[in-house]
């Protein structure tokens, strides 16, 4: 057995344990912590799988920002989740099993891990790998593809995300005077009284 497979198995086992804990634990604070740890674990696993760029994104967005956002969301709700009734759990259980079965059904059609004739390695990917170092002078091919070959595409995505962010800020009230500042404003008033 390849010694690196030990690491894969260990990471997948820990991910499974964290996922079960997220489903079972009622304390929302613990769940927020566990989702952060889940992201950190999967990011570390992506590094083991040699997908460093994905790991960067996962660590920054999953473990960093979304933990803080979830904590902020928790301020507006309860600290504890009510345990769901058994009858409400049957439908989601079947949906999850059906989705899992579909994914396993699709699994044999995937190219093998690291396969030389997978779509990522055969058509235009090989071209990028050959031409990047002389055309763009960049050591990282993914960066070259995103920022140069597909530069306009990336610019468009950035504009869309920026517009969405501005729209949300306008809706919530960016100055903090609107609904966004409700919680701390209420508490401040209570303290004053």
């Amino acid at each position: 057995m390849d010694p690196l497979q030990i690491l894969d198995i260990a990471f997948l086992g820990m991910l499974l344990a964290v996922a079960f804990a997220i489903v079972r634990i009622n304390s929302l604070f613990a769940v927020v912590m566990l989702t952060g740890v889940y992201s950190l674990l999967s990011a570390a696993w992506f590094v083991v799988l040699d997908a460093v760029d994905v790991a960067f994104t996962e660590a920054a967005v999953g473990a960093g920002i979304s933990t803080v956002l979830m904590l902020g969301a928790m301020l507006l709700t309860a600290r504890e989740a009510k345990p769901p009734k058994f009858r409400q759990q049957i439908g989601p259980l079947f949906a999850a099993i059906a989705t899992g079965a579909l994914l396993f059904y699709a699994l044999p059609d995937m190219p093998a891990y690291g396969s030389a004739d997978s779509p990522a390695n055969s058509y235009v990917g090989a071209e990028y790998l050959e031409r990047t170092s002389e055309e763009i002078h960049m050591p990282n091919v993914v960066t070259a593809v995103l920022a140069s070959y597909r530069g306009y595409d990336t610019l468009g995505e950035t504009v869309v995300i920026f517009t969405a962010g501005v729209a949300v800020l306008l809706l919530l009230g960016a100055s903090g005077a609107g609904a966004g500042g409700g919680v701390s404003a209420t508490r401040k008033r209570e303290e004053d009284e």
Binding site: L40, A43, V52, A63, T67, V68, L71
Partner: peptide, 17 residues
């Protein structure tokens, strides 16, 4: 470098918590 980034993120998350 990646480990360094993780250390920074971990620090910020702990401060936020």
């Amino acid at each position: 470098d990646i480990a360094l980034l993780y250390a920074l993120i971990n620090f910020i998350a702990t401060i936020a918590i």
